[in-house]
Design a protein around this nucleic acid. Structure first.
Lengths: 255, 255
DNA sequence: TCTTCATTGTATCGATGTGATACAATAAAG
DNA sequence: CTTTATTGTATCACATCGATACAATGAAGA
């Protein structure tokens, strides 16, 4: 235990102009593909993730939920913070202006433009069919893009998506979150496709079904799926009560 | 794909005075207990985690490493970001001044004091014996405290420690990080105690040993531990090459 | 020197879980 | 009525797991 010089506020280097924002990576599955919602800020620029600054009275989760709501119209869906991106030069409005080929960049004098922006990465899971993408507040429009064909994005947003996907895969080991990508009622084969698409590898059908049933967190409904040209699969629903009970007795969701 | 109003910088609410910092939760094991390094900023105040602001040319990892170095003298040890704490009112210098019972708080006029501080939580694993705690730059001193007897801390630092411990436990499933708490050469019973202490539950000795050997990431050295009044256990060392190989072929580190 | 005692390395047993395969049931399409 | 694709479930061989047993060992104590 050693004693040091006394703290002095002057030792802090103040970042003169700083913003902290959020960037949700919004995943969905459609047409057998994992998709991410990308935003267009200006058609002349590269695409980017949806995002926004954290406002005065918000915490980070509030901000992420707000951006999600603005962008997808959805509330209270699966949303999880996964990483902060903090490189000093990760963000600069000068870059944006240069890409717009506006005459040499000079910051507007009556507006505060941050020198530095931290962003907190979130990943969200939504059911494709319930979303009607809008541009939110700050973007012109947004659209779903296959995870395999993501173009070069603004700032470090390609990195953010990579990290989001790997965090999503990790999270599958701790929480059975796949059902968030499906409608309320779903079949086992549908759930299996979700896992196969996220993990990008095939799973054995009978073993997958056995494991899901053993978890005991899905309620088999009386009905079966209609309109299929073969044996009709059962419909299931995620059962929060059974899930809580399973958690208490200690279950692991490894595949 | 819908079109929205054009982005306007004025829609951003600028946080007039903002700091982003880091708070490493530094874990070690000693005397069969999991310990956390706590700092004292002023003896009249509650204790807190070590921490500091992210400087102009640093990213978050740089800052966390710097604080760790300032506090423990150690470099390049296990350090991992786990969560951002962002409540609007989580931090206020006014509170600090009030606790000091200084006459009604008035911010110093020549110094920038942030209205709001975000902090990025890190957890670190260090070998107790190699650390000689100092107060770092901003604290008077620091000391090890048992995880079971953490007192009420400043700000939201109790919450940060709780989250750090649960993140540490999660991480054990993905990476065999326990050895970071031990000296370079260690025995299997020593490693088992680390896991038992972190997970706070007993493990069966023979099965633990079998599993560790099956992972094939620890090299058994020729020597055995000396000076024990019973059969001398083998010494092992974490083998980075074997670890990388095991990762490639896909291993899971569940206990 | 001999005995005691705590601890370690390893083998083994039955129970449980896993991957792979098989097969009957079923519902629309032809 | 047959064909075809898919589903629910059973089963087999094998791996892994928890629990127990036991010989080996090295210092401490008699």
């Amino acid at each position: 235990m050693t004693t040091n010089q006394k703290f002095n506020f002057r030792n802090y280097v103040k970042n003169t102009s700083l913003t902290v924002g959020v960037n949700p990576v919004i995943f969905s599955v459609s047409e057998d593909k994992l998709k991410v919602l990308l935003a267009t800020f200006d058609p002349r620029l590269k695409k980017s993730l949806p995002g926004g600054a954290i406002l005065k009275n918000e915490n980070a989760d509030d901000a992420a939920n707000r951006v999600l709501q603005e962008t997808t119209g959805l509330e209270s869906i699966f949303l999880k913070q996964f990483h902060v991106f903090s490189e000093p030069d990760r963000f600069s409005y000068a870059t944006v202006y240069n890409e717009l080929h506006e005459e040499s960049y000079k910051p507007p004098e009556d507006i505060d433009i941050p020198d530095r922006v931290f962003t907190i990465g979130y990943f969200a899971l939504v059911n494709f069919d319930t979303v009607h993408p809008t541009g939110g507040i700050i973007n012109v429009m947004s659209e779903w893009v296959d995870i395999d064909t993501i173009p070069e994005l603004m700032y470090d947003h390609n990195l953010i998506i990579d990290e989001a996907l790997s965090s999503l895969r990790k999270e599958l080991f701790f929480e059975p979150i796949g059902y968030n990508l499906l409608p309320e009622k779903f079949t086992m084969p549908e759930l299996q496709r979700i896992y196969e698409i996220i993990l990008d590898k095939p799973l054995t059908r009978s073993n997958f079904q056995r494991k899901m049933l053993n978890w005991g967190i899905y309620e088999r409904l009386g009905e079966r799926k209609e309109g299929v040209s073969h044996k009709r699969p059962f419909l299931y629903r995620f059962d929060k009560e059974r899930y809580d009970k399973a958690i208490k007795t200690g279950i692991n969701f490894c595949l």
